[in-house]
Design a protein around this nucleic acid. Sequence first.
DNA 1: CCACGGATGCGCT
DNA 2: GCGCATCCGTGGA
Length: 199
Amino acid sequence: MSSQILKKSFYSRNPIIVAKELIGKILVRELNGEIISGRIIEIEAYNGLEDEAAHSYRGITKSNFPLFGPAGYSYVYSIHSHHCVDIVTGDLSNPTGVLIRALYPLSGIELMKKFRNKERLVDLTSGPGKICQALQITKELNNLDITKKETKLYIIEDNFSLKGLEILSSPRIGISKAKEKKYRFYIPFQLVLDKQKSI
DNA sequence: CCACGGATGCGCT
DNA sequence: GCGCATCCGTGGA
């Protein structure tokens, strides 16, 4: 399998473009020499100063500061006692990012089952908090350069093709402002399951 | 000090 | 499938 880590230039673009193009890529976590990974099937874009729903919309704070830094960095934050992970996008003129919301599990599935205390594949990484639990993404991984393998958290591209899969869009989940923006992009779990089987 | 959120899981229909 | 209680870090007063 030919695969390589996505570079900073990939992330240094408009968050909506980056979000759409991250569908089908693989989020990889290295943990104690083991690989836990899954294909990104749901993601949301947050367009910084132009987007009332963005964490960065009201300016920098001690927790959202990674969004104001360079693209390709992680932003790990907590909400309702769960962790979520964003990837910083764009350039320094606008603090934008994308929220990884769901994965199709690929490797390290037994570890994910252990960390999640769930057995069904669909319960492992079907939400931003679940992803962080399954991949053991904690605040220690906040504000790190995820274009470097040493970070042990990065996104790779393989030869998976989205051919035959349509990327759907909808309003974002769980927000109270800017509900009209269709910045959530996803492909249904079942369709990915069928396609993986046919490879 | 308090109100609340980029969520989750459970306990019902 | 849907509503709701719980969650606790964060930020504004």
